[in-house]
């Protein structure tokens, strides 16, 4: 379990550095997806399964895919198709794919014999515990977070409008 943590943490560090130093936006985003996946693995090893699943679904799944789409759609046209093909060439994808495979292999070896993982952290945090915390002591935080989302929405709406 310790080894899993260290390997995942190393991949996270490496991938994040690649995000920062990469000059190609699409390649940087690929590494960002990888970085988020490895952070999810770190959460998993700490016993926060729910947070790990959310990290994969929300960040790596929804937000990053949206980023990649937006970056690619911003410059539409025949000329840019070549560019996109060059962006997603096989050599650029080798390293992120290989490192993702390492993460998958880690997950597999952990799950293989028993079908569950014991946490390296102090205790496992189940979805039920998260729910009870959010709607118990942190109820007001949840309500305020909804206002925060509304604020972001209104701000984005106002700044994004250009037809007035």
């Amino acid at each position: 379990m310790d080894l899993t943590f260290y390997i995942a943490a190393t991949i996270a560090l490496f991938a994040t550095i690649m995000v920062v130093i990469n000059t190609n936006p699409v390649h940087a985003l690929l590494y960002l997806v990888l970085s988020l996946l490895s952070v999810a693995t770190v959460f998993f090893t700490l016993g926060a399964h729910f947070a790990a699943a959310l990290e994969v679904i929300v960040y790596a799944g929804a937000i990053m895919v949206l980023f990649v789409f937006v970056v690619m759609m911003l410059n539409l046209g025949a000329k840019t198709e070549d560019q996109e093909r060059r962006w997603l060439s096989a050599p650029a994808m080798v390293l992120p794919a290989a490192l993702s495979a390492v993460l998958l292999w880690q997950l597999g070896t952990q799950l293989w014999p028993r079908g569950y993982i014991t946490a390296a952290g102090l205790q496992e945090v189940t979805p039920k515990m998260v729910g009870i915390a959010l709607y118990g002591p942190y109820l007001l935080a949840v309500e305020l977070a909804s206002m925060l989302l509304l604020a972001g929405l209104v701000a984005a709406y106002h700044l994004g409008r250009h037809d007035d």
């Binding site: 305020l144 206002m147 604020a151 209104v154 701000a155």
Partner: peptide
Amino acid sequence: LELLSIPLYA
């Protein structure tokens, strides 16, 4: 703090 800051950006 964020609820104060985010509207301020806009």
